[in-house]
Amino acid sequence: MNQTIELFVNGIQYRRSVEPRLLLCDFLRYDLGLTGTHVGCEHGVCGACTVLLDREAVRSCLLFAVQTNGREIATVEGLGDGPQQMHALQHGFWEMHGLQCGYCTPGILMSLVPFLEENPDPSEEEIRELLSGNICRCTGYQKIVEAVQLGARLLWEESN
């Protein structure tokens, strides 16, 4: 039986009727058309579908849309406003070649937002530990680590 939910996604309020078994990632992609959130393994391992639920990074393939009633979701669409106005982290990835195919990138960016808020100047080891929750099959991670380091510096410069 469908249930009506009301939630905020990237600051915009939505009201939709959903089947309880609808996963949050599919709700974002199919019901709201926000296809920046990617779906990889669908069992919480790859991290491609990571979004923010009330400002904490979570797997959207392991949440049902009905569970987000009254909550706040942030997806990669809420980060930068196109190529001319990228978020500092996106700029870091662009500048340091932190992606090849880009499939894993939205999930990595969304994992990084709360991580860098809590720890604005992380060590390489801390970055690699955070990245262990996101699988990239192209880059070998070295460029991603460098992208995070640059992104963190840009974020810090922006806020100081």
């Binding site: 639920l53 990074a57 991580f115 929750g133």
Partner: peptide, 12 residues
Amino acid sequence: MPHIAHAQIRNR
């Protein structure tokens, strides 16, 4: 705690 999966999993 830090040994349990990843931060994104422990959040939930």
